[in-house]
Computed example of a mutant assay.
Amino acid sequence: MAGEIEHVGPRLRAARQSHGWTLEDLAERAGMSASTLSRLESGKRQASLGLLVPLTRQLGIRIDDLLPTASPDPRVRRSPTRRGGMTIAPLTLDHSPVQTFKITFPAAHAAPAPRVHEGFEWIYVLSGRLRLVLDDTEHVIERGEAAEFDTRLPHSLSATVDGPAEVLSIFSAAGERLHTHVATD
């Protein structure tokens, strides 16, 4: 708790300054002396509810806004899924603005039917060889190579007949929904 209290003063100062108020402006509004407010902001005076309540009311914030928030666990704990022979392992949190996956494509003799949708996709081949059919042109992306494309162009992804391919795939939100949630035909 002692570590949390030390953040109150700087956050109180930032809230006051965001209103464009001087120490005197806020102190007068909250019914206290400017020196008391100054000591609170600098950490030289212990913060108490009796002092913080009138200040937070004037600032239009909650007392909780003056305390640090707990850092969320940054680890990704989403289970891989299997679909159409592929293994799709999420590498980003569910609420991330861009989604990243490690996808393992099984060996395939032919490319699947191309699809078109909104979005962009970026791929990097970790192992194997990836067949990218983009706008009726077939490209083989080798291990260590990357590709970027507009998913509004007809496209399909698959491993070659040589064996499976492991790929890092980064999608805009529209691409992520189609590639990881829609069943294949």
Results as ranks from 00 to 15, higher is better:
Gly3Ile: 08
Ile5His: 08
His7Asn: 09
Ala14Met: 08
His19Arg: 15
Trp21Asp: 00
Trp21Met: 09
Trp21Gln: 04
Asp25Glu: 08
Leu26Arg: 01
Ala30Asp: 04
Ala30Tyr: 06
Ala34Gly: 13
Ser35Phe: 03
Arg45Tyr: 05
Pro54Lys: 05
Gln58Asp: 02
Ile61Thr: 11
Arg62Gln: 14
Thr69Arg: 15
Ala70Gly: 13
Ala70Asp: 12
Asp73Arg: 13
Arg75Phe: 13
Arg77Phe: 15
Arg77Leu: 13
Thr81Pro: 10
Arg83Ile: 14
Met86Asp: 04
Thr87Pro: 02
Pro90Gly: 09
Leu93Pro: 14
Leu93Tyr: 10
Asp94Glu: 15
Ser96Met: 13
Ser96Tyr: 09
Gln99Tyr: 01
Thr100Ile: 15
Lys102Val: 11
Thr104Met: 09
Phe105Tyr: 14
Phe105Arg: 01
Ala107Asn: 06
Ala110His: 08
Ala111Thr: 09
Ala113Asn: 05
His117Ala: 03
Gly119Phe: 11
Tyr124Met: 02
Leu126Trp: 08
Leu134Cys: 07
Asp135Ile: 10
Thr137Lys: 14
Val140Leu: 11
Glu148His: 10
Arg152Ile: 10
Asp162Lys: 03
Asp162Ile: 08
Gly163Trp: 06
Val167Ile: 10
Leu168Lys: 07
Glu176Gly: 08
Arg177Met: 12
His181Lys: 14
